[in-house]
Nucleic acid binder design. Sequence first.
RNA 1: GGUUCAUUCGUCUAAUGGUUAGGACGCAAGAUUCUCAUUCUUGUAAUAGGGGUUCGAUUCCCCUAUGAACUACCA
Length: 482
Amino acid sequence: MSQKVRTRFAPSPTGYMHIGNLRTALFAYLYAKSNDGDFVLRIEDTDRNRYVEGATQVIYDTLKTAGIKHDEGPDIGGDFGPYIQSERKGMYKEYAEELVRNGQAYYCFCQKDDIREDGDNPQAGYNRKCRNLTTEEVEANLAAGKPYVIRQRIPLEGSTGWNDLVFGEISVENNTLDDQILLKSDGMPTYNFANVIDDHLMGITHIIRGSEYLSSNPKYILLYQAFGWDVPEYIHLPLICGRGEDGTVSKLSKRHGAVSFQDLVSEGYLPSAIINYIALLGWNPGTEQEIFTMEELSRLFGTDGIHKSPAIFDYQKLAWVNGEHMKKLDPGYFRDTAFPYSNLSGTALEAKWDHIASLMQSRIQKYSEIPAQIAFLKEMPEYDKELFLHKKNKSTFETSTEYIKMALELIPTISDWTVDALNEAFSALAESHELKLGRLMWPIRIAVSGLMITPGSATDIMYLIGREESVVRLEAALSKLA
RNA sequence: GGUUCAUUCGUCUAAUGGUUAGGACGCAAGAUUCUCAUUCUUGUAAUAGGGGUUCGAUUCCCCUAUGAACUACCA
């Protein structure tokens, strides 16, 4: 077969991992793995002004937590290093100069202002003033120590195109392209330049990135051609968008809610669920399966399933996916990972966490819902007497009073304060009075919880709050009903 | 403004030149459960508009509309 597939993820260290970037990383990883190839991590930190302490570590941590394993990278090495762009800064200049020598680039001595084609339109491109400077002029300027940048000499005619693995044939007239800067006046490469050089040097075969690069891609291709290098395959991914409060759709950003991986995790979403969900944003497996593990994804992934139109990030569906992953979790694992969210550390309820966790697992979609769900166990909430009324169970104030009294008489006879014993005792009580269990238990559950809706049944709750507290709450209910 | 891209239920999406346009989330209803949740059943809702091509177009082509991205000595 042909050469081994190599993909890369090239984030800049900004201190957090945007979900769109993570999806790009995921797809690059999945594409490599589904083709038995290598996935490379490269850190793009050419902008020193934006340097953030510890930001690189965030990238490592995120990828690790997400289950995206790179085969080469700054932290693990590889044959194509260094993998941090700032450590490669020495090499770009000579590539830029090579382009100048063979006429594919030129020195530009223009200052930042007054270089537009149209002074009124800030969006117009560079006016190419320095494009045709004579060798003598250039030499003179350099000798005078004038600051300069190196610009790409885009052909004035013809067109440049490629066959995108997702978007198909795309072609652009060269005369619409800007003579972009390759080397900045500080000698550092621009992202646009460094990217191409690094991708080539690292032997990247498939460039996977967001479709926001679609319009600048011809310039990259022209660069490959200027060097006489093989042009890689391109896989552009549809954008992930968010819907604003005003209903407008745009590239997913902070104003749409939590957009970084770590924000989502701290809100209680499982990394596996986040990965599962974002994999489905812009890709479909061709089956009706919706819940996937990373292992399944890397087996099933392919460019056929990627589509072109942007997708809106839907927190509701993410929550559902998360709930599905929650339910599949090993109960022991759930118990341990959910506990920190419970706020029960050091309380009497900590000993009964196992039971609480078992009630939680099927009813929460994210960990962060736990405290609100179980607050009533710690402290009896204020509640309205009306809660005792329930049509379907024919529950009235009178029956409630009666059943609660029965419960109070029953409780001292229960020797083992366990859920099983409680269930048994109350079932027997209902039977002996020829009552539907639901009818009997409705007021009891209200009395011990103060809530219309509770996790677990009345017996679960009595078990959890303990015999003594159960009696206290039941007696309080009696006086409320009196 | 220029360039590029996109458009199937509210959202994520499937499908094909011929289907009752399928699934999922959400929402609604019902069954089960001592409430809720889970589980199960059912319902809800879409091919942007206009022209072609065709026996037939959601699918192919064109136009319009709408939306998005890019258009930095940021990455």
